[in-house]
Design a protein around this nucleic acid. Structure first.
Lengths: 155, 155
DNA sequence: CTATATGCAAAACGTTTGCATCCCT
DNA sequence: AGGGATGCAAACGTTTTGCATATAG
């Protein structure tokens, strides 16, 4: 999703609940959806620092609070990939995807696998549950670590 | 694994590296492996409180430090199940299992599925990686929440 | 104008660490 | 004895909160 489109969606969502569209909320959303940095799974601190490059006045609290709004509005979702910090990713509505983390450099790849999803549903059903969500992270040793992704821990 | 067996394994492991077998380490290990509470996935705090019932003198730091030893020795492993705290579970050597969390009461069920594991390996291979580890948690709505497991958030 | 949002600093939270003391071996 | 372990409290990093001020609607 383009930054502009994301901001538009946020604006609509905010308006519907009488919340305000501020300079900071626009900026944070734009930076979050700006894929140029290809930090597709930034931590709060990553995002905070990138936002400060554009506007040094923005505080930590505002980034935390805006990120919460993005999650509530369905534009972002938290993803625990390592055992370390929480990372956030732009949410692609309606598309499940899972993650593979490179054991060598920490690069994060996304993939989809319908057959796994089917088996997950079956497994849940077998236990007497209806699958409502899932989280899956694979950790892999690369045959050859993709150079353009190899940035040690940067998502 | 029985508490006694677990303590024995820890004692061997400690001895091999010149570390000491203390009253606290025994107790913490016993309590961790004591399945009577059926808190099979306790947080550090859960464990701390249970340990204090037996010996009110034990400090937080000792529980943290001992839990680290249990992980290093292969007797325990951390498992991020919700997005909240880290939980620890007794490690069954050689057996992978995944978790299903009841969306209603937080009960944690374990299951194995070889076909999913195969597909995970295939998915990793397809991306150019050799699967070295994985993490999978399903969240399910119960058809009927098992009364004996329904203890709101207790693993 | 009024209600909401901001930035700061303080608080809260889970976890780690430094240190004097204790206690296995 | 002596090196490791303990318990306490302080330090730590991350996230939340309280409050006075600023600002969108």
């Amino acid at each position: 999703m383009q930054p502009t489109e994301a901001v538009d969606k946020l604006v609509t969502w905010l308006a519907r609940r009488g919340l305000k569209v501020t300079r900071q909320r626009r900026l944070i959303t734009e930076v979050f959806f700006d894929q140029i940095h290809r930090e597709t799974h930034p931590t709060v601190e990553d995002l905070y620092l990138r936002v400060r490059e554009q506007d040094p006045g923005v505080g930590h609290a505002t980034v935390y609070r805006t990120l919460r709004l993005l999650v509530e509005s369905g534009l972002a979702s938290p993803s625990r990939l390592g055992d370390d910090q929480v990372r956030y990713e732009p949410e692609i509505p309606g598309s499940h995807h899972d993650h593979l983390v490179c054991a060598e450099c920490g690069a994060i790849l996304e993939f989809e696998d319908d057959r796994i999803e089917e088996l997950q549903e079956a497994a849940a059903r077998r236990l007497g549950f209806k699958l409502v969500d899932h989280r899956m992270v694979l950790y892999g040793q690369p045959e050859q670590c993709p150079p353009d992704l190899c940035r040690r821990g940067q998502g």
